[in-house]
Design a protein around this nucleic acid. Sequence first.
DNA 1: ACGGTGACCACTT
DNA 2: TAAGTGGCCACCG
Length: 107
Amino acid sequence: MANQLFFDQAIEVIQAIPVGRVTTYGHIARYIGTGQSARMVGWVLKNCSLLELPAHRVVNSSGLLTGKHAFPTITYMEEKLRGEGIEVNNDKVVRFKDLLWDPAAEL
DNA sequence: ACGGTGACCACTT
DNA sequence: TAAGTGGCCACCG
């Protein structure tokens, strides 16, 4: 595939997300260089949800768990996050701004 | 071949 | 402050 690079880069960044932290599609896309192709990040995640990617640590720019429907159960993502010390309330990450992990800044 | 859709984001009214 | 619009790229019917 021609977009294999994007694929690999995305996986690399996602796997680097520290436990107890979260990041967004936009930040990942931006770090890779695609910039505005945040949608593709979501596509990659869905395609790689079978791998060992901590996809549950990736949320949208509002801290909302938009991808929970791609998991075995709707609550799976939330439970997983809580298990790592991340509080989730009404499908959104609590103190999202504090837990946000920016690859460009910390990688 | 073509249009619609999607785990989205940022800028502009 | 809130809603609308464009852009991105791959997949599916």
